[in-house]
Design a protein around this nucleic acid. Structure first.
Length: 562
RNA sequence: GGUCCUAUGGUCAAGCGGUUAAGACGUCACCCUCUCACGGUGAAAUCAGGGGUUCGAUUCCCCUUAGGACUACCA
């Protein structure tokens, strides 16, 4: 067959040539070992998957560490699944986590960089030029099979339990069409797709060196896969090959789902085009334990809230905590480094792709919480204030207003038990600050009902409670040191029948109304509503004597009327 | 069904033929203590099973088992 003639029949309007493209997109001039890689999302959702964030994080870190290039390419060849606003969300979200691109599509829809356009739907001429070349070289052919034809082939293959399912060998009927038949079909307006003429046969093996998983030997792809769809655009496989070639990617980092036969297919395509095959690195998944079966399953947006990056943003996990967690997932020795360098920027740590786990790891929210607590404890009160405020502005207006209205007060509040040798570690998220600190604000406190107060048996006898609180107010003086403050409490506690020596109290509990811990407990609940709070002395000092009195009166009032 | 990947406590994991099998999170206990935290000390808890190779296997090989992925005009 005259393939040149066929190419012109199929692509009469394509004038672009591969040679011209090679010149237009020259090899990158980078230092030895520089990694050029990309994030290539499909704009099909309004939320980013944590697994994608994780992949991006690894790829961008590795690229930047090597003085390479990390770019963004939008894979929108499936026009049916496109979602409005998805690209913007992706870019914004990644930026939030300090993942930035050196070139690619931007949030306002423009491109920056010399290898664009960075959106596949705008690269049709490139794909068609390469496709035309393949036809000219006899490596691709048009296929007129319809969906039902394909289904028929598939069910035949399944019925006869053939090991290979697909369009190959004797099943690839359109492979044998003559030029005249093709011309006739086209003249009759029959729709066609372009298929790759695969030279591999059942039983053929191929191997490639995966940067993460090592050398993998695989059954080679034997299907005459589709490289140009009916709409003229390529599916993933061919778009990947053309784009990563002309964008001069040298390391394709992508999810594990592409490892295996797909990769052999992609390599065949690279070879057929005469393009250099890039290095592949297939990242394992992040998993989640299924409570019913106990099996680890792929983290999925539809089933697990922590699969969506918006979850971390909404709950207010500090970005540095999430980033630390990703480092930990990638390289377990990061933990040791972090222990030794608690305040260093992560950029000082070298991520080692060789230390990536070959299998997926189960997502552990407890670990993230722990990291978050530790990161939070390292921040100054002002930092905590500002980050919390920024978060609240987006996610909780009420909290934001209070923080804004009482800024100095709020910073002092966040500073309690902070700048000490053993800072508190109870804030995991910005969201958590609300339940942890709301009682500091009168706007909250004076709206509490008796149910909001953490009452225990110490509150059963109203007279005792009143007695304790009145004594406390009498003894309280804002100028007291911490020691003197506590000495005063002990003093009146003993006077009104509470034990001040805990060992003594444990020996003879019946001799006392309670111990000094109960006294503090009563005070704590009365002025904060909670039984778990930071240092009581500091809280009292921050609120001031007048406010203490008001709160105690308020509390006694509602306790009495319970 | 076929092909590939993976397998150390509940989780993340060190380990590269000889170890009392690190460490972290989580759990529990005790200490510290005005609560809660923090901190400290300690405990329970792991080499999936079976064959080889070897003087010796968690480590190397094979099989089994389990889990995961792929097998689209989706990416």
């Amino acid at each position: 067959m005259d393939y040149k003639k066929l190419a012109n029949l199929l692509f009469p309007n394509v004038t672009e040539t591969v040679d011209a493209l090679e010149k237009k997109y020259p090899k990158r001039n980078l230092e030895e070992g520089a990694i050029v890689t990309r994030f290539a999302p499909s704009p099909t959702g309004i939320d980013v998957h944590f697994g994608h964030l994780f992949n991006c994080f690894i790829a961008s870190t590795v690229a930047h560490q090597s003085n390479g290039v990390y770019y963004l390419r939008i894979e929108d060849t499936d026009q049916k699944r496109k979602v409005e606003g998805a690209v913007e969300t992706i870019i914004k979200t990644l930026n939030t986590f300090n993942i930035n691109f050196d070139e690619g599509r931007t949030i306002d829809g423009n491109d920056f960089g010399n290898y664009g356009p960075y959106k596949q739907s705008e690269r049709k001429n490139i794909y068609q030029a390469v496709a035309k070349m393949l036809v000219e070289n006899g490596l691709a052919y048009p296929c007129f099979c319809k969906e039902e034809d394909l289904n028929k082939i598939r069910s035949y293959q399944k019925e006869h339990k053939l090991t290979h399912i697909g369009y190959y060998g004797e099943f690839a009927k359109c492979r044998n069409l003559t030029y005249e038949e093709i011309e006739e079909n086209i003249k009759n307006g029959k729709k066609w797709v372009l298929r790759f003429k695969c030279s591999a046969k059942p039983g053929d093996r191929m191997s490639y060196d995966d940067y993460i998983k090592g050398v993998i030997e695989q059954d080679a792809n034997i299907n005459d896969v589709i490289i140009i769809k009916e709409d003229g655009l390529p599916p993933y496989n061919f778009a990947h090959v053309c784009d990563d070639h002309f964008m001069r990617t040298n390391m394709v980092m992508r999810g594990e789902e592409y490892s295996g036969v797909s990769t052999t297919e992609h390599i065949q395509l690279f070879n057929a085009c005469g393009f250099e095959v890039p290095r592949y690195a297939h990242n394992p998944y992040i998993l989640k334990l299924d409570p019913e079966t106990g099996n680890a399953v792929k983290l999925s947006k539809s089933k697990h809230r922590e699969a969506s990056v918006s979850f971390y943003l909404r709950d207010g996990y500090p970005v540095d905590a999430v980033v630390d967690y990703m480092y930990l997932l990638a390289n377990s020795d990061f933990e040791k480094w972090r222990e030794e360098n608690p305040t260093s920027p992560v950029s000082e740590y070298t991520l080692k792709i060789s230390n990536l786990s070959k299998s997926g790891s189960v997502f552990d929210i407890d670990k993230l919480n722990n990291i978050s607590k530790n990161r939070m404890a390292l921040k100054t009160a002002t930092q905590v204030y500002e980050e919390t405020y920024a978060w609240a502005n987006e996610h909780n207006k009420e909290w934001a207003e209070l923080l804004n209205k009482h800024k100095d007060f709020a910073i002092k509040m966040f500073n309690i038990d902070r700048e000490t040798a053993k800072p508190r570690k109870d804030i995991t998220t910005y969201l958590k600050t609300i339940e942890l600190y709301n009682y500091f604000f009168n706007e909250y406190f004076y709206n509490f009902n008796i149910e909001n107060f953490a009452l225990d048996e110490s509150f059963n006898n109203y007279e005792n409670v009143e007695n304790v609180l009145k004594e406390y107010l009498n003894s309280y003086n804002e100028n007291l040191s911490h020691e003197d403050w506590f000495a005063k409490i002990k003093e009146f506690s003993s006077k009104i029948g509470y034990a001040t020596d805990n060992k003594e109290y444990k020996k003879n509990p019946e001799k006392y109304l309670g111990n000094v811990a109960n006294v503090c407990g009563i005070i704590r609940v009365a002025i904060t509503s909670q039984n778990k709070t930071p240092d009581l002395y500091e809280i009292c000092k921050l609120l001031g004597k007048e406010e203490l009195e008001n709160r105690i009166n308020y509390f006694l009032e509602i306790l009495k009327n319970k």
